[in-house]
Amino acid sequence: MKKIADRCLVGFAWLSAGMVTLAAVMLVGFLLRRGLASIDGSLFFGETHWLDAVSGRAPVFEGIWPALMGTLYLVLVSSFVSIPVGIASGVYLAEYASKRVRASLGCAVDLLAGTPSIVMGLFGFALILLLRRTLFPQAGTSLALAALCIALLVLPYVIRTTQTALQAIPVHLRILGPVCGLSGLQAIVHILLPVASRGILSGVILAMGRAAEDTAVILLTGVVAQAGMPRGLWERFEALPFRIYYLAAEHQTRRQLDQGFATSLVLLLLTSTLFLTAFMLQRRFEKRWKKW
């Protein structure tokens, strides 16, 4: 009787593994089958010549170039906020904070990490409402607002990876700072941060990946279907994930649908490269300390 139960369990484990693999393969396979053929110059630039599009001399109407650039700007601007703040917080939590401060600020970081992205978007939206009612009646959703909300969304990733990477440094390396006559800050800058850099980098890349893929935040904070190239921080913009979402519901021609699949492939390539890089870095970082 027991043997049968064991067998069933083993069978179920194999089945689950197989199903998930099948699902992932189907997902990617379906995307490839429907989208691969459409990945070409016109996917990105439409009818516009690529040189004109890249240099911004001519607008792109059909292609996803503006959306790609929008996503890129979004990732860059949000990283500009989230990376320095995140690393600084991680350093503080790992190296300076007392036990109590670490627990209470850590709790805030956890709460932030648990905030659903749509709520973060709603926060941005509410912020604009508030600004309109008070200081700036003409305030509106924009790239800057979206980037700020995205930065808050990914901030916990950067903080936590920085903190764990620093805390994982073994005592025999940690003690070298004081032994070499370095002050606390000098030890952090010249020993601890370089040693932890790989772990921190993986967190940064992870955060960029999350920033590139998130749709719900930008949905409420300034993304639109037709904005052209991002023109400034205070303007609305296009983004890849939103374009995919938009095309799923609003495609009118077969060509647009194919473009949706191709766009998905492009975004998938972008994010999975980022995530796998982060994963590899993380794994190598962990392996390094197992030697000791």
Partner: peptide, 21 residues
């Protein structure tokens, strides 16, 4: 590796593929 890869798939792509599959 597959599981890690899956964490990297954007939500919107899960949605998009499901709509048509």
């Amino acid at each position: 590796t597959l599981v890690h890869f899956m964490t990297g798939i954007p939500t919107v792509i899960y949605g998009f593929v499901s709509v048509f599959l």
